[in-house]
Design a protein around this nucleic acid. Structure first.
Lengths: 341, 341
DNA sequence: GTTCTACGCTAAAACGATTTAGTCCTTATC
DNA sequence: GATAAGGACTAAATCGTTTTAGCGTAGAAC
């Protein structure tokens, strides 16, 4: 049993394909198709279970009503929530989203852009990796709208982006720890190749300096980009134990925090008596852990909504020459104090 | 700047589109295109950055090299891992996967099938909801291969499925608890509308009966299908507290377990001294929680691989009339004892 | 009686690929 | 010297839609 096409409907209803097309696209009235014919066609289409072929439609119209979403890793809670929000938001505007993960691999990101481009998505929401600016400019040159999320290229103001204010978030967290009287504040971060991570790191240094506490470099642990789980665990344990151990630790990402919890658990360090813990970006585990872990919460839903809105605006305006303002948008983070401080 | 099409390449290279097509599809030799022309075309294509339009290609060939993956909820750890495995596996066979979540909603599932069907995916891997068998039969009638995962329709042996042996898994877990001397074993499950959950529940009853322990119905908590978080939390707390509280609890799903942990934490019940805890299906939280929580682990990777393999087999054989055997496949679960018992 | 307009619909081109059936040269065969 | 047999390509149909231009008829206008 083959799929039914528009011409099957036309044949069975005794009309032309054009007529069927008009009826199916609610253009029947505009094209002054008669009541009877409209009903006839609708009935036949329903009976035969007609579903228009989106490939053909997309080929003809140049629009697929699909947007491509590229995130770092869809199984990470942060990106999963973001993806969900974006999908829900897209649905409101009658767009479908197809998502994929880069695993933070530059080459893979490029491949994904290519794949989505070949599949003719109408627009892109991308969590970029390093060195992706050129590829994104190329999409823009093909007049495909792109909005970045979570990360941005400071030197490319013409690429719109929606992200949390990383600098403010970490500054706020560091101030909070200092305010609570902690002095030896350790920091665990990932190799900062992109601006958003550099902003986070810079905030820590700035705040510490502002309080007259020069940062002790031994307290800053930079985990390499593509890290080995066991290796990283060992390094964090190293940082947190020993004679002159820190009295607080600030993890700059979600998964580093989870790793940190594991390290602290293995070392049997008491939170918060021996060590205060703060993490950038929330996670189910932090809410449930015993004790609960304080976090800097990113406004995930807001990021998703704003990004989608920005994209839709651009989608509406493609070809009109009228463009919404670009420039990255930074949203406020929120400190959520829990038992770990 | 518009996208370059095959005819742009043809024009620039001074050959016909057919020739370009042959070269791009490695059929040049078979079509005895000369060395020089091949190189010429390849160079022009590279220079102009030609990427074939997959819509056009799919329309013409009837194959999109895409498979549709429908899961319950992509932000759930179990499905996220499954999706990742399936995606990796698909890549080996040169297929792309587009995934979407039903949120366990029958209507949404149907819509998703429709959407994927309109987009002409070549095959489906589906975590079905109730009453979806007919819709799936319809796909099969259109000779689109389908493989179910995680769930199945016992009354439809002609729909292939790959899942864990739910009955064996829960039986093993219950035996284990009994073997450790626990007698008042509570059970928390979700309203069992589909076979896989019925199997789990039945295993518990069977094993209890086999040991001569008739199940006390007050120890079995069935959380309604679309549950309210706070409500469910309260009910679980009810079950676990009071004068004649259970000495062990078995959560039949991942997210019920997480909810349970939260309840137990709120009640300040000591694990495992006051209450032993076991959960069907693993989760990061269980590995990290203090104490660590014992689980029945599903062989997620194996499910993904076997499902993908089964689908590929069917994809290869579509139209040949030769079909691989159907019938659901059940894989062994593994008990992972941790501190909670 | 011819020309207009409106009505209700259809023909055909177009989107960008793939693929079948040629076409037009050479060169080989008898 | 006519025919056959490659060799190296190309023309055109096709996939399933959308959309523009147009066609035939009927009644209105002059």
């Amino acid at each position: 049993m083959k799929k039914v096409s528009i011409s099957d409907i036309a044949r069975k209803a005794g009309v032309s394909v054009s007529t069927v097309s008009f009826v199916m696209n609610d253009k029947a009235v505009k094209m002054r198709i008669s009541r009877e014919v409209i009903e006839k066609v609708e009935n036949v289409a329903r009976e035969m279970g007609y579903r228009p072929n989106q490939l053909a439609r997309g080929l003809r119209t140049g629009k697929t009503k699909t947007i491509g979403l590229i995130v770092e890793n869809i199984s990470n809670a942060f990106f999963a929530t973001l993806a969900k929000t974006i999908e829900d938001e897209a649905k409101k505007y009658d767009y479908k989203v197809v998502y994929c993960s880069t695993d933070n691999d530059e080459e893979k990101a490029r491949e994904l852009i290519n794949m989505l481009s070949q599949r003719q998505v109408d627009g892109y929401i991308i969590t970029p990796t390093q060195h992706l600016a050129e590829d994104i400019r190329r999409l823009q040159a093909e007049s495909k709208p792109v909005v970045l999320i979570d990360r941005y290229f400071p030197q490319h103001e013409e690429i719109p982006a929606v992200l949390v204010d990383n600098y403010e978030g970490v500054a706020q967290g560091t101030e909070f720890l200092l305010g609570k009287g902690y002095r030896k504040i350790a920091l665990v971060t990932i190799e900062a190749e992109m601006a958003h991570m550099k902003d986070r790191l810079r905030a820590y240094y700035d705040v510490m300096a502002r309080h007259g506490d020069a940062v002790e470099e031994r307290l800053v642990k930079v985990v390499p980009y593509q890290f080995d789980r066991e290796m990283a665990l060992k390094e964090i344990k190293n940082l947190l134990s020993g004679t002159d151990a820190p009295d607080a630790v600030f993890f700059l990402t979600n998964y580093l925090g989870v790793l940190g919890i594991e390290a602290i658990k293995d070392l049997e360090i008491k939170i918060p008596e021996q060590l205060a813990v703060l993490c950038f970006d929330d996670n189910d585990i932090f809410r449930l852990y015993n004790p609960t872990i304080s976090v800097i919460r990113q406004p995930i839903e807001e990021i998703g909504q704003k990004a989608m809105f920005a994209l839709i605006e651009r989608l509406k305006h493609t070809g009109t020459g009228v463009y919404p303002e670009d420039k990255p948008v930074k949203l406020a983070a929120e400190l959520i104090p829990r038992q770990s401080i």
